[in-house]
Design a protein around this nucleic acid. Structure first.
Lengths: 394, 394
DNA sequence: GGGGATTTGTAGTATCTACCTACGAAACCG
DNA sequence: CGGTTTCGTAGGTAGATACTACAAATCCCC
């Protein structure tokens, strides 16, 4: 029986304020003390005290004075993360492969390493590959890591560090992933679902910067959602939130690979696209994706254009449901759909707006992620940053 | 451009800690300083300082010393809200009627008043009825109100105080509700959607006490959801979150009153129940509800039992979708379904578990609200408490 | 009946933090 | 070169909890 997460102590307010300043650096890039003070509505002296702590820790460094730009007054000294500040180890695990990286607080990937494993690899083999790739990417920086983040395709409980279920990489379930890496690197190790990691990547390094609420949507073979509400990612009981791909949108619809019927995935995944393309007798449907579909639709292929419309509309069904339920004002789409380009993005946005109640239409905005293939690794690093610099919402 | 909601100041930590202590009193009832200190993991001296501020404000009072109960040591003095502490005005607006009450921090309804208005009343008439009912319920306590909370059926933006849309009470849209009441009572006035208000009522005075995340589900003619995640209610952009009744669960299903197709409401509302009952040729279907259905099913009426099963299963479709998406560990059901009693509750819980992925089944718990007809008014009061005692999540 | 043990609530001091005011430093302008 | 503007910093003040020590109230046991 605890009182909501203990009480605040005077030194907590320092931690919180330092965290907020750090987030401001992530959101806005280099800033002078005076700029920070104006943003926060406090005096320059206060900001000076706060950043002096960060400078002592080596997280923040003074850049060279900005060249005079015609503005009167003493020019400010820009502050930002040093190139080796806020180092985090980042790992992504996918069927058949493991990737690791060393990421700094600027969101730069300083080192990368990957390993291939058998698609039917057991937990031991995967953990070994993770440790090996991490050693290659982060070995020299082991001492200065804030932590190591691991993004896993499947359900996992970040608090306990357990992987509870993973369709794509069954060997991971129950594997001593966190414990082993923690022992080997003597660093804090955090594991999370890959869709949520993508959301955290966007929050720290992408289009989610400065937004307190948004949804990140992974498309492709499966659909997963990472929700950020009030600045924090929603994990749910035992980390099982975000299985949006397996929400029912067609009661008594097609059988889904999860065993249930009419899941969103059954009408909005690559699997559906290819099957539907085949049914509509479109050439090359069995290897089709959003990119090739958009190409052909743009080239005047009418059946392709119609199929693209259906694909966007089916994706919009789930986005609309999310909007009705939670009304996050912003969607960041990852994965296959991004290949469809601006035309496809606009189509998804338009169809989503059409599918929500009229008064919330103006609030719907759909963007495609610009983090490309770095997204997953940045997400794993974001996991570490979010845990290290915990922000108490106002 | 602001730094996330300003920085924390030393005096903020007092506010936060006082708020947390207040929430502890709501969650656990009367507590001594020593009990609070143990819960919070701080010394008794610290708690003594915190509560002394609350005692000075008149919010908390020392009760009579507990009678010695065989435990050694000096007996503690229980502290709790005084009977006239934390007074809030509470208003609920429904088609044809307005209800107001004076509620204290204990969750007791000290005064009540109601007014009837025409179902086609315009904004002016409704606002007048609200003011009149409030004067009767809270007139004498006007000076000591923390604020006034108003629960409205429809979409409303709590920040701006605007009612943006209301199917049941169209006259409210755009009415100067908040401004008028604020002027008349010189108190802070907060308006929110009724489903979210129910959630806040449960959070402060019901089964939501002490839970950081849960979902409150209103059943009956329409379906609305109030989500509490991390201690805060989810409002979404312009307050439009919670329209779960209008999420698509049957693609291309029946036309819904909202104009779209296959909304959850089309298969899980009283309207569906009565139509389906008629279709199945069940006597008295046109006025049937969960209570009468459960009665007849319990009396051995097989068609009724089957219909009840379908009703529960259809409600479970939406709860399962919520679970897949957000995995709140706890559902508190209000409205018509509560009439179905324990049998119906167990049925909904069982069907929801059957409809979610296997690993999250143990996390699903469905409860019926025990706040009965007070729920809405307590929710309106909870709105005031939540705004007054803002809690920063850990 | 009385001493010891246990628990409760309250002083007083130390520590942490942001706030406020004032000041030197560095640029622009005329 | 002086005036103006802006930037960063130093010193004192105020608010809050942490810690230690102490008086008070009850039970237990001899």
């Amino acid at each position: 029986m605890k009182l909501n997460g203990h009480l605040l102590t005077p030194s907590d307010i320092g931690d919180v304020n330092r965290s907020r300043v750090i987030q401001a650096f992530c959101d806005h890039g280099p800033l002078t003390r005076a700029e920070l003070a104006r943003m926060a509505g406090v005096t320059r002296a206060t900001i000076g005290n706060i950043v002096s702590g960060l400078i002592d820790d080596g997280l923040i460094a003074e850049g060279p004075a900005r060249e005079p730009n015609g503005q009167v007054g003493k020019p400010g000294r820009p502050l930002w993360f040093g190139p080796r500040a806020g180092l985090a180890g980042a790992v992504t695990i996918a069927p058949g492969s493991v990737e690791a990286a060393l990421v700094n607080a600027r969101g730069e990937l300083l080192e990368r390493a990957d390993r291939t494993v058998g698609t039917d690899a057991d937990g031991k083999a995967i953990v070994k590959a993770v440790a090996s790739a991490l050693r290659e990417a982060c070995g020299n920086s082991r001492k200065s890591l804030l932590g190591i983040g691991i993004a896993v395709p499947g359900v996992c409980d970040t608090d306990s560090g357990e992987v509870l279920g993973s369709g794509p990489v069954p060997g991971l379930v129950g594997a001593p992933l966190v414990a082993t890496v923690e022992r080997g690197f003597r660093a804090r190790v955090l594991v999370d679902n890959d869709s949520r990691a993508l959301a955290l990547g966007e929050k720290w390094f992408g289009a989610g910067r400065g937004r307190s609420s948004f949804a990140s949507v992974q498309t492709g073979h499966g659909i997963g959602v990472g929700l950020v509400l009030g600045g924090a990612v929603v994990r749910g009981a035992t980390g099982s939130a975000g299985e949006a791909g397996h929400t029912t949108v067609v009661l008594d619809g097609e059988r889904c690979r999860c065993g249930r019927r009419g899941c969103w995935e059954t009408i909005a995944s690559l699997g559906w696209l290819r099957k539907e393309g085949t049914r509509r007798k479109i050439r090359g449907a069995s290897t089709m994706d959003a990119a090739s579909l958009a190409d052909r639709a743009g080239g005047g292929d009418d059946p392709a254009a119609q199929l693209m419309h259906s694909y966007a509309d089916n994706i919009a069904v789930g986005l609309a449901n999310l909007t009705q339920m939670l009304s996050p004002p912003f969607y960041i789409v990852h994965g296959d759909a991004v290949g469809g380009g601006e035309v496809f993005r606009a189509l998804i946005e338009e169809r989503t707006r059409a599918r929500v109640m009229s008064h919330m239409r103006p609030t719907v905005h759909v963007a495609f992620s610009e983090l490309d293939q770095r997204a997953a690794l940045l997400g794993a690093a974001g996991l570490v940053l979010s845990e290290t610099f915990q922000l108490t919402a106002t």
